[in-house]
Amino acid sequence: MNKVTILEDWCKGCGLCVRICPKAVLAISTTHLNKKGYYPAEVVAPEACIGCAGCFRTCPDTAIEIEKE
């Protein structure tokens, strides 16, 4: 099972990962702010992740880690 982890306090809520993810695994939180005061990305459909690492590739702040099968 592929596992995506958002390093929440490194995220600036830019949404590029959400845009590029082919499986809608990620979304920008609308409920809580991170330490920087951004609404961070969060994993909303972990089981859908196919481990393509598109999110990791487009993240400007290397705020994502992926465990890939």
Partner: peptide, 25 residues
Amino acid sequence: STVIKKTPVLRDVHLHYCPGCGHGI
């Protein structure tokens, strides 16, 4: 499983760039 994460050549410091800026990539 393999882990895809930050390379140690990129220092462990927060980047000052704006959200969505291409520099960080």
